[in-house]
């Protein structure tokens, strides 16, 4: 396969054969993934880190950055393996196992590289990286991209937008929870229960974005 052909295959939607980007569609994907189908508040992906790392604003930002980073790389890896390896060999039923291995080894690799070459970034993101392997948002975006038959370009756009959506929800939540620390919450609702209540109210707000599509 020469490079021009390879490039056009990568940019094309697997089953339509039409190469390139459609700006309108790209915007639709971005808005849908950040707001309308927000990964945390509408699709329920990545709830564990959403609750676990939203107590402090700083750590929320760090976690968000780490997720966007790994999500993009994982999408690149999973899309390539799926469309250039599993599909031609008729092994698509191995996709779940392949994706989770890609994500796990990617997280490990990123951790090692950061540790060696960028200690500053490592100390900022390092503690969040091991948590990311079991963040279902990462595997979720990989599986969704395949389900939707997105081209590599759209898949990456979707991954970045999903990561931004996750980060947005996380940061909003962290801000609210910092205020909540000072509030007078009934003892039975302290901690997780009130966090879920806040998430529910945020989710109602995000429901309003549904109108954006039409």
């Amino acid at each position: 396969m020469n490079s021009a052909v390879l490039l056009s295959t990568l940019l094309a939607t697997p089953d339509s054969g039409s190469p390139g980007f459609d700006l309108g569609k790209m915007m639709a994907i971005i808005i849908a993934s950040i707001f309308v189908n927000n990964f945390v508040l509408a699709r329920f992906l990545g709830i564990c880190p959403f609750l676990g790392v939203s107590k402090q604003l700083d750590s929320a930002i760090g976690m968000g950055a780490a997720v966007i980073f790994v999500m993009t790389l994982a999408t690149l890896g999973s899309w390539t393996v799926y469309n250039l390896l599993l599909v031609p060999m008729g092994l698509t039923y191995l996709s779940t196992i392949a994706f989770i291995l890609i994500i796990a080894s990617l997280v490990q690799l990123v951790e090692m590289i950061l540790q060696k070459y960028s200690p500053a970034l490592y100390s900022a993101l390092g503690i969040f990286l091991p948590l990311i392997t079991t963040n279902c948002a990462i595997l979720g975006v990989a599986v969704l991209n395949i389900d939707e038959k997105y081209s590599l370009g759209y898949s990456l756009v979707n991954a970045i937008a999903a990561g931004i959506g996750f980060t947005l929800a996380l940061i909003l939540m962290a801000g609210l929870r910092q205020k909540l620390e000072l509030a007078d919450v009934p003892p039975a609702m302290k901690g997780k229960p009130v966090a879920f209540l806040v998430a529910g109210i945020m989710s109602i707000a995000f429901l309003g974005f549904a109108g954006l599509g039409g």
Binding site: M189, P193, L197, G200, I204
Partner: peptide, 14 residues
């Protein structure tokens, strides 16, 4: 809908 899951879970935990 999505918010109902969060809110009901919050009450169950409480």
């Amino acid at each position: 809908l999505a918010p109902g899951a969060f809110i009901l879970l919050s009450f169950i935990l409480g």
